[in-house]
Simulated scan of single mutants.
Amino acid sequence: MSAGNRGPLVLAGLLLGVGLGGFVDGILLHQILQWHHMLSTPLPPDDVVNIKVNMFWDGLFHAFTWLVTLAGVWALWRAGQRSDVPWSTRT
């Protein structure tokens, strides 16, 4: 019995893991706990300009995590349409 082509599932899993991990970091650590930002201006930010810079870079990070997550969903969708990709719990 052939193991099949697991590469598409591994790629989808990696993309979803990075994207969803970024969501946890961005939402929990950036926004709720405010432990860090993507660009570390003086902490705590000492003026409105530094706060805006931190917010801009956090926004770019959040946009990146959205794109990576969407790419992971797309990769999973494409893998599901392939006959050579095994759909087992082990994969």
Rank of each mutant, 00 (worst) to 15 (best):
N5A: 03
T65K: 02
V18S: 00
W66A: 09
G72H: 05
I27E: 04
I51V: 15
G19K: 08
G21C: 09
G13D: 08
W66I: 15
Q31R: 14
T69R: 03
T69W: 02
N50M: 00
V24Q: 06
V48K: 12
G59V: 05
L43T: 10
S2K: 14
S40M: 14
Q31C: 02
A12F: 03
D58I: 05
W35M: 11
V24M: 07
G26Y: 04
G72P: 01
L28S: 09
A71L: 15
R6W: 00
P44W: 03
L39Y: 11
G7W: 08
Q31A: 10
T41G: 00
T69S: 12
L39V: 15
D58E: 06
D58H: 04
L33H: 12
G72F: 07
H36V: 10
W35C: 01
Q34M: 14
Q31H: 14
W57R: 00
I27F: 14
N54D: 15
D47S: 14
V68N: 06
T65V: 15
P42V: 13
L43V: 14
L60A: 06
L15T: 01
W35Y: 11
G4T: 09
A63R: 07
L67P: 04
G13A: 10
T65W: 06
V53T: 13
L20W: 09
H30T: 12
N5Q: 07
L70C: 12
L14K: 09
V68Y: 08
V49E: 12
D25E: 11
A3F: 03
M38Y: 04
R6C: 07
L70M: 11
L67Q: 05
G21S: 09
V53E: 01
I32C: 08
V49C: 02
L43A: 13
L60D: 02
A63C: 08
N5T: 00
M55F: 05
L15E: 05
I27C: 02
L15V: 12
H37V: 01
L14D: 04
L9D: 09
S2E: 13
V48S: 10
L67Y: 07
A71Q: 05
M38G: 09
L67K: 10
G13I: 08
M38C: 13
T69A: 03
I27A: 06
G4F: 01
G72A: 06
G19A: 02
G19P: 07
I32P: 00
G13L: 07
L16N: 08
